[in-house]
Amino acid sequence: MARKISMKDAINEAIDLEMRRDPTVILMGEDVVGGTGSPGEADAWGGVLGVTKGLYAKHGKRLMDTPLSESAYVGAAIGAAACGMRPIAELMFIDFMGVCFDEIFNQAAKFKYMFGGKANTPVVIRTMVGAGFRAAAQHSQMLTPIFTHIPGLKVVCPSNAYDAKGLLTQSIRDDDPVIFCEHKNLYAHESDVPAEAYTIPFGEANVVREGKDATIVAYGLMVHKALEAADALAKEKVEAEVIDLRTLSPIDWDTVIESVGNTGRLVVVDEAHPRCSIATDVAAYVGQNAFGALRAGAQMVTAPHTPVPFSPALEDLYIPSGGAIAAAVRRTLASGQGAGAQRKAS
């Protein structure tokens, strides 16, 4: 039954269904049960934001609290994956990658290649990303580009509940290591989600809104900011197409190129920092492979090259806004070939 559920519940449901389907699926992380060994409820927390709440009651020992030892348990998940399990390790915040990165990028990412194709490492590392929680510099980052840089890793960042369930199910069934990035500000976001299990293939962007005047490429929370911008632009008779990349590695270049072929104008939105980001990656790819289709230079809307600030006054300025995205679309329409002609043409 399709019903409206939150992204948080969709993630919980995907894990639940896969644990039912496949006995090799296990889940570990700090507080994912949340109470092991404590005098109170055994599963008091179910994750720091309650995403895995209720799963312990259903699956018992297949959910494991861990000591605060990201290297050890993320590495253990990777080792177990190489030994035939399908572990999900929760790295509470992506910002904590610094204390376990070796196991991810030198071990999980490289086993297959380094061992001549003889090892599979079907591990999923679920991790919270993104700003807007007033959580400051070490709990708010969008570090996706660090992972997309590494061959051997797949990187996923859903923007809604439906995609989250289908992409997480695919991540768990996938034979490669997957970094599954959950935007903490989207956990409450609801959409229609079938109760049954389903998968969304990797490398398939979602055109969430069609338009002929400009292409906005985004992922995660930024998809919603891009849609805000598109709504505002529609009132000015500018039709923006919004592409949700959904997976960042692999990335659906075809959909981006096809869209830019239709619109001639590109705005890439990324909550990551401006240098060496998904934004620069998409802009460079389009510049190299579809230069002829571009009627103006690509515009990038990103977070600034600063740590994430704490004060709400500053953090709100830090996060790319719908207004900034709309302004970038207006800039691209006002420059290059056929500048300003958009309105007449429409």
Partner: peptide
């Protein structure tokens, strides 16, 4: 429509 295609695709992606 896009939605029609989407709905069929969502159905096709269900397990089984």
């Amino acid at each position: 429509s896009r939605q029609l295609v989407d709905d069929v695709l969502k159905y096709k992606r269900l397990d089984g």
